[in-house]
Structures are given as structure tokens and as C-alpha cells.
Design a protein around this nucleic acid. Structure first.
Length: 631
RNA sequence: CGGGGCGUAGCGCAGCCCGGUAGCGCGCUUGCUUUGGGAGCAAGAUGUCGGGGGUUCGAAUCCCUCCGCCCCGACCA
């Protein structure tokens, strides 16, 4: 047993066996008595193998660096709390040092991810941070990635990048090492520093430039096998986020720049999230708003009832104001958005129409034929050239030059609507497709869904909530294997491209997301699984009471031996300081020991989310905490 | 990238308009007192006022320039 009471001891030896577990984490075998039954031996996982746990964890020997006030550049609560709790310190925009408290949380998250990745068949390796340009040129992403990818040169003036992701390198490994269908499937992963030179880093570690990501890549012989790998990763992700103690939702997602055909995001539910999640409470439909389909209106377009009429709307630009001025509902107006594409023949101008109360979905627009090669918002000169009028009074009626008109499904179904008259200070009302102007060139779903829209699966109506994207799984197909000639030989001895999937988890972003979801006015409230410490022992009167000191030391030793990740606050701070610090840091379980209770043989237990402490007899506290704080 | 704002002690800020001794709170150091919810008193330490250039007898303050940071950015808000 650990058996040491002396506060001055710095390095207690821990006479238990370190074992190499099947998934390569290092654990220690600890005696464990489950519910008072016969003692059993079980492996208690502390932290990952590369992070030896300091067994004697006393606050005076550790590093607690809390702040009363957050730096003024911190905007969101997780950034403020992480800084105040001493988890991170900013070095440059979007670049942070992970301080000791913060690193412990990261290591715990990594340990859980490793366990579940290994359980799901993943094989850990570690690919370099710096990668040669050649591989990226091979897939074409050297040119496609843009300034988000940090490029560096070595002393010979050769191009390198600091990796934002590792598809190229892992595919290079696979094509070099895997030659036979017998070697498939394989899933390689690593947990590595990434660098993405974000246009606007913000929100602390939530959108940093340098961050830690777990990225995994699966290689299979065919689509069916690859889909199994995808499902295995999906299931592993569900387990990971459940173990982390977070409320999350898996949603269908756009495949974006990475490419591929099937994709889910794992979103931590938080009102401060940047993403909008669409889900159906009556079914299992869930998607990112980028992807969620707005179904065509069920009804047939009504017949025109009014004559078209031009109305003066001086200085009235926004649909809301136009509707109010004319005295019609906002739903009767149509919003005009002008896009441009740059073709070899020069710019082409597009007019996209959504209902006044709807919003354009740029991801959907970007998939339209003609816009799928990339688009931009048209410049004001381009707008005037084509519409004969500056922004604010634009519409599909009588454009000066022909433009390609794309109407949202809802707009295509409208009658007697309002839009700009392409004349400064005027709109038109009573406008009707077919009668007053030709049918749109294209009718498509180009808007964001709104709450109450019918669910695409036909099983109810949609609801919307905010989330933080912490994980993303992609079915890649052969996009990279084809580009890089990554093949294996099948039974017939024929080369076949490997079918790939890729799977990411933002480790450092998870830290921020967990805080966004779990905090109060005093600070962070960690889920047990990722708390920097599971339990803090707060002795009141450490410096003056031998009884307090002895009891604290003894309980610390016993609880640690029981496998509880505890820290003993021996700093001899005043209680207010001590409590405020640990509440800010967010340690979920607190044991308070003071002369006041000790004289009655009592100590106090309080969970971070409890309103107040509970008195517990001294001889019951260890078994109580074993039940509560021993994950 | 465009627009706006800000850089003064470890953190939060004042001083700048109107040029003249660099300040406040928290934190830090020392001592005494205090000791169950961020203690009190006393005495201290800490600054290239973001960098460079200019104007001036004199610049945190006025001018130029560079850098850094923050916020905002649809014909949404």
C-alpha cells in the first residue's frame, strides 16, 4: 500500500505492478472491493502510457494558476474559464500552451479515445507534423487548399507543409505497405498536432490554429467492407462521446472539401455552438443545417389574384421594411441574392431568390450545376451592369441584361409576391411567375430549413438546436487511393483501388465543448471521466491542525490506493480561496476536512453541482467516494 | 481580404482630447494580526507606455509607419 503520512514526502513509491494492457495503455492493478464484496483485482486506467502519473499529487507540488479576471480578448465562456482556471495560456493568435491542469484533461480524453479506437480495431501510428509538398501535389490539394494550409521551406528551398490532416501520408503508407486483399481491412490512426491557418481564429481552443486531433483512416477492399469500417467507427464515436459524459448528437453532414459520399458529424449540444443542427423529435432524422433538405411545398402554386403594380419604396431595402411599408406579410416578399461565377468567357451573373423570411444556404447553392465550380457574391458594378440598379431594389423582373434565375422551391410556388423593381426606390407587388415574368431557369432547394418545416423523412416537423462539431466521419471511397494509385491485389491477382474512410475527433476542441456544456457562474463542472482530478481533498486549517493534516493525509493515501484520481490541497490557503479555486477548475468531487467536523467524527462531501455539502462519518467516507468517484 | 476597435506592471483598467514627476484595483514580496467562502493593517518590488521614425526644450499623449490582438463582414442580422 502507499502508506505515507508525511506531508513533506515528494515521491512516494507506489508498489503495484505496472502492466501493459492489450490496447497499449498503461494501467496499474489496484485492489478493489466492489460494494463491500470480496476484493477483486481490476485494472484501473489512469492516463495514457506516454504520460506517467505523478502518484503523489499535492497542490503545493503541482501548479495551480487561477485568475480572478479573464483576459479581455476571451469572448466565450470556455475560453474565459480555461484561462482563469489556468488550463491554457495564449502564445499567439489561435496558439496556446496547455498548462498542467489543461494537459491532464487532454490526456484523459486521449486515453478514452485510444481505448475505444483500439477496441474498434484501430491501429495507432504517428505521422509527421511536417510533410513534403510532393504528396499534396499528387492529390492536387497543394493548389486547392489555399492559405489555410501553412507552407514552409527547408534550407534547400524545398516546399513542405505543416499538416492540417493526413490523408496523403497515410495513403502513401498504405500503398507502400499493403499489397494484398489478405492485409485488408486496416484502420490506422494517430493523435497529432494539426495546424490550420484559420482566417479568424477565435473562441480559444474551439477554433485555434494549432490544435490536437485524432484522425483515423480505414482501408478496405470494396464499398461494402468500407461501409462496415465506417459503421464501426460511427459506433466507436458514440461510445467515446458517451464515455466522455457529453450530451451530443450525430447528424448527417455535408462532405465539404474532403470529398466523399457519406458523412456524419458528432456535435456536442451547446447554445454557443457555431453549427445549427436540424432534427426531428418524432424520428431519428438529424442533419447539419447545411445539408437538411427543405421539401417542396405540398400545395400547388395558387393562381394570380392581383394585378402587378409598382410601388414606391424610398430608402427601403430590407425585406422586413418593404413588407411593413407595403402592408403585406414578410412571407409575401422575395429576397434577391446576386452571385457571380468566373468563367473563361468572363463573369456570369446569377440571381438567387429565396422568400423574405428565409435564408440562402450557400452549401446547397454551391452544388447547383454551374455554381458547383465555385462562386462569389457579385460586385456592385456587376450588379448595376446587369440590373441597372444598385443593391436594395433588385428582382427578377426586367433585368437590364439576362441573368440566370434560380428560385427556391418555396419561391417557385409563390403567387402575387413582392420583389425589387430594378429601379431605385421601387418594388413591385402582385408579381406572378408565368404571367408577369418567365418561369425561373432553375428551381431548387437553396434555403436553410426553419423550425416547423416538414422532416425530410416524412415523420413530423423539424426542430433546430446549436452544436459544436467535435467529430466527423467520412466515407471517402477511392478519391485518394485513385489519385495516389493505392491499390491491392484481389484474389484474381488484379489490382484494385482501396476504398477509404476518414474519421476525426478534435481533442482540444472537445475540451472547450465540454466546458461550454458544463459550467456555472463559479466555473467548470467536469464530467468525471475527463476532470483534471476526480476528487479534491480540501483540508481547512492545514497549517495549524495536526488532526486535520493527519486525516487528510490518511484519506488521500487510501483514496488514491482505491484508484481515485485525487489531489490534496496542502497549500494552507484560506477556505474561501481554496473552494473558489477548485470550483473554478471544476473538480467534480470535493472532500472537506476540518476540525469543526472532525471533533464529531465527520467530514464533508460535496459534488461540484450540489448546492451544499453533506456531512459523512469519517469511517464511511472512503467507501462512499469509491462508489461515487471511482469511475 | 474589407470595415471598425484596442495595445500602459502578471491580469483587469485609468491617464491621451488639452504634451511637462506613469497611476488605480487584483496578484506578487516582507512583517504583524486573522483563519469554514476569494482576509485586515503596514511596508515594498515590478513598466523599453507594442516596435521604429518624426514634430518638440520636452511625447504614453501629436504625426507617419510597421507589428500584434479583438470584433464585425450576404443584396442576412
Amino acid at each position: 500500500m502507499v502508506g505515507q503520512d508525511d506531508a513533506d514526502v515528494r515521491a512516494i513509491t507506489f508498489p503495484v505492478e505496472h502492466v501493459e494492457t492489450p490496447d497499449c495503455s498503461v494501467g496499474v492493478i489496484v485492489p478493489y472491493s466492489a460494494g463491500g464484496g470480496k476484493p477483486v483485482t481490476r485494472v484501473k486506467f489512469f492516463l495514457c502510457g506516454s504520460y506517467p502519473r505523478k502518484i503523489d499529487m499535492r497542490a503545493s507540488q503541482f501548479f495551480i494558476a487561477t485568475l480572478k479576471e479573464a483576459p479581455s480578448d476571451a469572448e466565450v465562456v470556455s475560453h474565459k474559464l480555461m484561462t482563469r482556471a489556468g488550463m491554457i495560456r495564449k502564445l499567439a493568435g489561435g496558439i496556446y500552451t496547455y498548462m498542467p491542469i489543461g494537459l491532464r484533461v487532454i490526456r484523459k480524453i486521449e486515453a478514452i479515445i485510444r481505448e475505444e479506437m483500439n477496441r474498434a480495431g484501430g491501429i495507432e501510428l504517428l505521422m509527421p507534423l511536417i510533410q513534403p509538398a510532393e504528396l499534396w501535389q499528387e492529390t492536387g490539394r497543394w493548389d486547392k487548399m489555399g492559405p489555410e494550409m501553412l507552407r514552409v521551406k527547408d534550407r534547400h528551398d524545398r516546399d513542405f507543409i505543416i499538416q492540417p490532416t493526413s490523408e496523403e501520408v497515410v495513403t502513401d503508407i498504405a500503398r507502400g505497405e499493403i499489397h494484398s486483399y489478405r492485409q485488408l481491412p486496416k484502420n490506422f490512426y494517430h493523435i497529432q498536432t494539426k495546424f490550420r491557418d484559420e482566417r479568424r481564429p477565435r473562441f480559444g481552443v474551439m477554433r485555434g490554429r494549432e490544435f490536437t486531433m485524432k484522425d483515423a483512416y480505414s482501408f478496405d477492399r470494396d464499398e461494402a467492407a468500407a461501409e462496415k469500417s465506417y459503421q464501426a467507427m460511427y459506433a466507436a464515436y458514440v461510445r467515446i462521446f458517451e464515455r466522455l459524459g457529453l450530451k451530443f448528437r450525430a447528424v448527417r453532414a455535408d462532405t465539404g472539401a474532403i470529398g466523399g459520399s457519406l458523412s456524419h458529424e458528432f456535435q456536442v449540444i451547446a447554445d454557443t455552438g457555431e453549427d445549427l443542427l436540424v432534427y426531428c423529435p418524432d424520428s431519428d432524422y438529424a442533419a447539419n443545417i447545411e445539408l437538411a433538405e427543405a421539401l417542396p411545398p405540398a400545395a400547388v402554386r395558387p393562381a394570380p389574384t392581383f394585378a402587378m403594380e409598382k410601388v414606391a419604396t424610398p430608402d427601403t431595402i430590407r425585406c422586413e421594411d418593404v413588407a411593413r411599408l407595403i402592408g403585406l406579410p414578410l412571407e409575401a416578399t422575395v429576397k434577391s441574392i446576386v452571385l457571380a461565377t468566373d468563367t473563361p468567357l468572363g463573369p456570369e451573373v446569377w440571381l438567387l431568390l429565396v422568400r423574405g423570411d428565409h435564408e440562402l444556404n450557400e452549401v446547397k447553392a454551391g452544388k447547383l450545376p454551374g455554381l458547383d465550380g465555385g462562386f462569389r457574391f457579385a460586385s456592385e458594378p456587376e450588379i448595376i451592369e446587369h440590373f441597372g440598379c444598385p443593391p436594395g431594389y433588385l428582382g427578377p423582373l426586367n433585368t437590364k441584361k439576362p441573368v440566370k434565375v434560380v428560385a427556391d422551391r418555396t419561391v417557385a410556388n409563390m403567387a402575387d409576391f413582392v420583389s425589387g423593381a430594378n429601379e431605385i426606390g421601387f418594388h413591385v407587388k402582385g408579381l406572378n411567375w408565368g404571367r408577369d415574368l418567365p418561369e425561373p431557369d432553375l428551381v431548387a432547394d437553396i434555403r436553410n430549413v426553419v423550425e416547423g418545416d416538414p422532416s425530410p423523412d416524412g415523420k413530423g416537423v423539424l426542430a433546430i438546436q446549436r452544436g459544436i462539431e467535435v467529430g466527423h466521419v467520412f466515407f471517402l471511397g477511392t478519391k485518394y487511393s485513385a489519385a495516389m494509385n493505392c491499390t491491392y491485389l484481389d484474389e484474381a491477382g488484379k489490382p484494385q483501388p482501396m476504398v477509404m474512410g476518414c474519421y476525426g475527433i478534435g481533442v482540444t476542441r472537445l475540451v472547450g465543448a465540454a466546458i461550454e456544456q458544463n459550467h456555472d457562474a463559479k466555473g467548470i463542472i467536469w464530467p468525471d471521466a475527463i476532470a483534471p482530478f476526480t476528487l479534491v481533498i480540501c483540508p481547512v486549517g492545514w497549517g495549524k491542525s495536526e488532526a486535520v493534516r493527519d486525516t487528510a493525509n490518511r484519506l488521500y493515501t487510501e483514496l488514491t490506493a482505491a484508484g481515485i484520481d485525487a489531489i490534496l490541497d496542502d497549500r494552507d490557503e484560506r477556505p474561501g480561496v481554496m473552494f473558489a479555486d477548485w470550483e473554478l477548475i471544476g473538480v467534480p468531487h470535493r472532500l472537506t476536512i476540518g476540525d469543526r467536523g472532525l471533533k464529531d467524527g465527520m467530514v464533508e462531501y460535496q459534488h461540484r453541482s450540489d448546492p451544499e455539502a453533506t456531512k459523512v462519518p469519517l469511517d464511511e467516507i472512503v467507501s462512499l467516494l469509491r462508489g461515487k468517484a471511482c469511475a
